[in-house]
Amino acid sequence: MALLRIEDLNIDYMTLRGRLRAVKNASLTLGEGEWLSIVGESGSGKSTLAMAIPGLLLPPGRITSGRIIFQGRDLTGMSGDELRRIRGSEIGVVFQDPLTSLDPLRTIGDQMVEAIMEHRAAGSKREALEMASAALESVGIPGNRVKYYPHQLSGGQRQRVMIAMAVMLKPRLLIADEPTTALDVIVQASIMRLLKSLQRKMGMSIILITHDIALAAEVSDRIAVMYAAEIVEEGPAEQVIEEPLHPYTEALIKSTPDLWREKTLYSIPGNPPDLRNPPSGCRFHPRCHKAFEPCKSREPRPTRIRDRMVACHLYG
């Protein structure tokens, strides 16, 4: 049985200038122990989709329809408190900016112990503190650093602390939202290695949100590509990279230096669409070099090809 199944999820932002659909008819499946990366440009809706899973959408974002089935239970129908109990214990989250994601006024130990006690995962504060320092050790930070304040740690260390906090209660799912974007390249690599080894050790599933398809190719089992609020392609990582089906995926790969060793770097013509007023038919058609007649008028339906999915008229 799949750990997580997202079915026809729609998320709207109610803005002053009207409704904005940030995620449209998204469906995904994530198996136990699987690593799924959601790739896309900024504003494609990938973060919104990921944050909706543990109920962390910022207002005015709202799930308007669809289901999120996690371990057989629908998260969209849960009360705030039920969701809260799942967050931090069964689903962990790591955010983009470790500098601002820690409370600057409290020691990291205090912050960890509080979360442990909220989930009644330890009998006493002392036991919780031991758990916290063990969690720090597991991400390569000396356990006695529980006494440190966030400002006493470097950026990379803080991200390790964030990861320790996310995994300390052994969640089944870890959501990492651009966890290395704010860090320098060398630290990036070590953080990704850490995530990979934690996944192996604990057997948890990971959803990584990234704009970097090369990074996704390196670490993921599966890759989903989002464009303008829609999932346009999804499949096993190697296949998606070696043999992209959607012209957008292809363009994305071509514009990545590591994967396409051409002399001049490709860049996709045009700009991402305004989600308040998306193009008719296929949303990518104004920028697509393979566009033909139906692309302008009809929306492409998701098509299954073996265990891959693509939403493009070329395959319909």
Binding site: L56, G88, V93, D97, E118
Partner: peptide, 19 residues
């Protein structure tokens, strides 16, 4: 961000408000 991070760890809203 840190409030969202508290929320992601399942800390109660009332405690988050205090922090």
């Amino acid at each position: 961000d840190f409030v969202r991070a508290y929320r992601a760890r399942g800390v109660r809203e009332r405690r988050i408000l205090l922090h």
